[in-house]
Structures are given as C-alpha cells and as structure tokens.
Design a protein around this nucleic acid. Structure first.
Length: 111
DNA sequence: CGTGTTTGACCCGCGC
DNA sequence: GCGCGGGTCAAACACG
C-alpha cells in the first residue's frame, strides 16, 4: 500500500493539536475576475475543496510569514463567477509589507 | 535550487 | 453509532 503514511507525528502527538480556532473571521465580498487579491500579504495555497453551497471549488490560503498564522478562505459565488468571498481568519502580527518597521506584537496582543 | 502550486488522503465534528 | 461534509497536511511538480 503505497499511500500516505501521515502517521509520522500523528501517532502520539494527538495532543494540543487542533485548537479551538477562536480567531475572528472577517468576510469580505469582492467583485473581481481574479481569485486572490493582493492586499500586501503573501499567500500560499494549502488546499482546495468543493462545497455544495457553491458549484465552484473553494481555495484555502495561508500567510507565508514566520510568526503569522493568518488564514484566508476564497470562495466563488455560483450565481456570480466574478464575485468572490474573501474570508480572513486570524490577525496579522506584522505589517503588510513587513521589513524593518514591523508592528509585530504591539497591539494585536490585546486581541 | 528554492518556493509556490496542485492533488489526494485522512481526520474530526455534527446530523440523522 | 454511523455517514457525510468540511478542513488540513504532505509529497511531487513546475516555474523563477
């Protein structure tokens, strides 16, 4: 069976994983021809799944930062292919164009 | 050579 | 208790 032995760290590391995901989710509806809107952050696609609500596949993006675990969910409307729903999950702990002047853990901790 | 993208499989929570 | 829907990860491939 040459499948996927994902049991690497899954054997006994079942603890602590899959937390509550309590981060607030910001949903934005944008009418654009492109799926991903460059808002200043870099996103890396980590999955794609088709849902019943939409006849189109949903794309899952993640911030490619070191200390940023913000997730972005891009869904397309079945009635309007040009309309995409961008759902931001979590909060960025760095500036959009992070370089030198980074806000880092400054005010986001209050959240 | 490195990073990003793509796809399939696996896991968990909820509904019936 | 079982089935289904939804979400995540990891390995391979393509492009810069």
């Amino acid at each position: 069976m040459i499948g996927r032995w994902r049991s690497s760290a899954l054997e006994k590391n079942k603890v602590k994983v899959r937390r509550k995901l309590r981060e607030p989710r910001f949903c934005f509806q944008t009418r654009s021809d492109v799926d991903v809107l460059d808002d200043g952050y870099k996103w890396r696609k980590y999955g794609q799944k088709v849902v019943k609500n939409s006849l189109h596949p949903r794309s899952y993006y993640r911030c490619t930062h070191n200390n940023c675990r913000v997730k972005k969910r891009v869904e397309r409307l079945s009635e309007d292919c040009r309309m995409v729903i961008t759902t931001y999950e979590g909060r960025h702990n760095h500036s959009p164009c992070d370089d030198s002047n980074s806000s880092e853990n400054d005010g986001f901790t209050s959240f």
